[in-house]
Simulated scan of single mutants.
Amino acid sequence: MALTEIDLYLDASDLNRQLRAEAMSGLTARPKWLSPRWFYDARGSELFEEITRLPEYYPTRAEREILAAYAPEIAEASGAKTLVELGSGSSEKTRLLLDAIKPDCFMPLDVSATALREAAAALATEYPAMKVHGLVADFTRHLNRLPRGGQRLVAFLGGTIGNLIPAEREEFLSGLRSALDPGEWLLLGTDLVKDPEVLVRAYDDAQGVTAEFNRNVLHRLNAELAADFEPEAFSHVAHWDADQEWIEMRLRASRPMTVHLRRLDMTVEFAAGEQLHTEVSAKFRQAGIAAELRHAGFTPVRWWTDTGHRFGLTLAVAA
């Protein structure tokens, strides 16, 4: 079996402190907000895996189609010896890259130690000649912890960059460029602007799985902060903002509510119809993402889409 190494830069107490701080600031803001990172406890991760299999949710299938077709080109162009994946989760699609690149080392990075250890163990068994060096870390805070060397290709897939607003994307891309040496590579997955009806259906499926995923943040606040939210009293909203070109996910209170978060000694009032913002998912155009990459110090080299032109992959080199 391959050598497996795990670096721990986050633990449960770190995440709990961050959740407490964000609940204090986000639930007292106008409008109220929480970031999408809090969807992903064990139950949230299960729900998201279910979402990726829904007929309405095209991004996962579209990105997999691109990787299946072009992974050999990505391997040849980058000459990568080390593959880094940010927000790796189960690393399911990444196997297409691993099979093409055959790296000496794979570095998955994820905030969930449990998910990372499970994925690392599976990959070490499947790819016995490859070292697996995992990092339990936050890609918005710990990019400077990425070990250097090995002609790295950083994969940031799934359109996750769309969860960052423009100022956050600029900071993230600049930080990633600083973490890479000139001549190293970024493979970036971006969901593309398309018919708003298609987009809204992808975030408001007929089976209600995405609605339950959205409400999972309230279940998490109940479990970790001793809150008394009634998740079913909040309806799921998926709204297309044509000006910003992003989907907003929100939770709308069905009636006036008073919510207590006992571990914060905090009380929050919701008016009937008031909305809690939980996610932004920006959609992109090729010219726009290329401009953002150049501004951060990358040079876009290749661009691929699926046959339906729903999703894009950009291969860029650190200038």
Rank of each mutant, 00 (worst) to 15 (best):
D191S: 08
G208R: 10
P196C: 08
T267E: 15
L54P: 01
E76M: 10
K93S: 13
L264C: 12
S112M: 05
F311N: 01
G44W: 06
S45C: 05
G134E: 05
L199N: 05
A318F: 01
H236I: 09
D110G: 09
R53M: 12
Y58Q: 08
Q151Y: 01
F139N: 08
R220H: 14
A121S: 15
G308Y: 04
L86G: 10
A272L: 00
V154T: 04
E269A: 05
A282Q: 11
L98P: 13
E126G: 11
A120W: 06
G79T: 09
N214Y: 02
T125Q: 14
I165Y: 08
E63Q: 01
R263T: 14
L187F: 09
Y58N: 04
L19I: 08
A296Y: 05
L116A: 10
P128W: 10
C105L: 02
Y9G: 11
A42L: 03
H142F: 09
F106P: 09
R285Q: 10
S174G: 05
W38I: 12
A316F: 06
T82G: 03
R294G: 04
A62M: 03
T160M: 00
S174E: 13
L98Y: 09
S112Q: 07
R262C: 13
A282P: 01
N144T: 14
D195T: 13
S174I: 08
Y70F: 13
K32A: 07
S178G: 14
E212S: 11
L180M: 04
A113F: 10
V193Y: 04
L164K: 06
E50A: 12
A291Q: 12
M130S: 08
Q18Y: 14
A113P: 02
P36H: 12
L221G: 07
M130G: 08
F298E: 07
D306N: 09
C105T: 15
A242V: 06
Y70H: 15
W304L: 08
T299G: 12
V280P: 00
I289R: 03
T82C: 10
L315R: 08
S281C: 14
V154P: 05
G44Y: 05
D195A: 10
L173H: 03
P59G: 02
F284T: 05
W303E: 07
A227H: 13
F106T: 11
L221V: 06
V280A: 14
